[in-house]
Structure formats: C-alpha cells, structure tokens
C-alpha cells in the first residue's frame, strides 16, 4: 500500500491526474477519526501488474466540506453517500439518509458519539 498525501483543496486535481479507468480500479472511500481531525482516504487498485494499492489521504476538520470525486469516478457516489451518514461529515452533492434512518443521530463511527 503506497500512501500519497494530498489536501482537500487539491484532491480533485490529484485524483483526476492519477485516475485512468482503463488502469485503475476505485475501491472505496474511508475516514478514520483521529480525535481532532479526520483522515479521509481514497483507495485505488491497479488492473495490471504489480497490482498494488494506492491510497490518497487528506486531513480534514470535522466541519469541513469534502470535495466530491464523482465527476472523475462515476461510481463513487455510493461510497460518498455512505460516509456522509456514518461519519457525519459533509461531502458535496451527497445527502443524509442513504444508510441510516432520518431520525437517527448520525455519525456513529465518530469517537465522541
């Protein structure tokens, strides 16, 4: 797993430069609660040898709006909609209610919840 550091401002640009549908496979988007900050991760794998996994990661504060990559990776909307509910973060173009019921207190995977 090779990790590439990026930031919220440049993630669209970085992934847009990196991602080629013929070569890379977008797996999933993930977030880890580090206490004060969240680590947002985008996982890609390669179709060709050596089949390694590339991870983009960016640090974000919990109330930041995270740019969406669905204009680059068409199937990313599922992962983004899930993360909005589970981590209680804001992602462009994703609304709450995909995973959890509307009356549920969202963000169950955050540490302070």
């Amino acid at each position: 797993m090779n990790k590439i550091a990026t930031s919220l401002d440049t993630v669209q640009e970085d992934i847009g430069r990196f991602y080629d549908p013929e070569q890379h496979h977008f797996m999933v988007m993930n977030a880890v609660d580090l206490g004060q900050q969240l680590e947002i991760q985008w996982f890609f794998s390669h179709y060709a040898p050596p089949y390694d996994t590339t991870t983009f990661f960016a640090l974000a504060s919990p109330d930041a709006t995270i740019p969406s990559i669905r204009s680059i990776v068409a199937s990313a909307w599922v992962a983004e909609a899930e993360l909005v509910d589970l981590m209680d973060i804001r992602i462009e173009g994703s609304e709450k209610g995909f995973v959890l019921e509307p009356d549920f207190d969202s963000g169950p995977l955050r540490k302070n919840k």
Binding site: M27, V28, N30, V32, D33, Q41, F43, S45, A74, S75, W77, V78, A79
Partner: peptide
C-alpha cells in the same frame, strides 16, 4: 473483490476496521 482496511493502536481493540464488500462496488452498475 473483498477489501479490508484495519488500523491498530497496540491494544486489544482495533482503532478502525473498514469492510468493502463486492456488491458495494456493483451497486452503481
């Protein structure tokens, strides 16, 4: 493809475990 991400912190309990199941990737298609 099944995908697991795990993060440990030298204790008995994991810090984070992320499961990506095959059907999750196929929902869009």
């Amino acid at each position: 493809e099944l995908f697991y991400y795990a993060k440990g912190n030298k204790t008995q309990v994991l810090e984070r475990l992320k499961i990506k199941a095959p059907t999750f990737s196929n929902v869009a298609a």
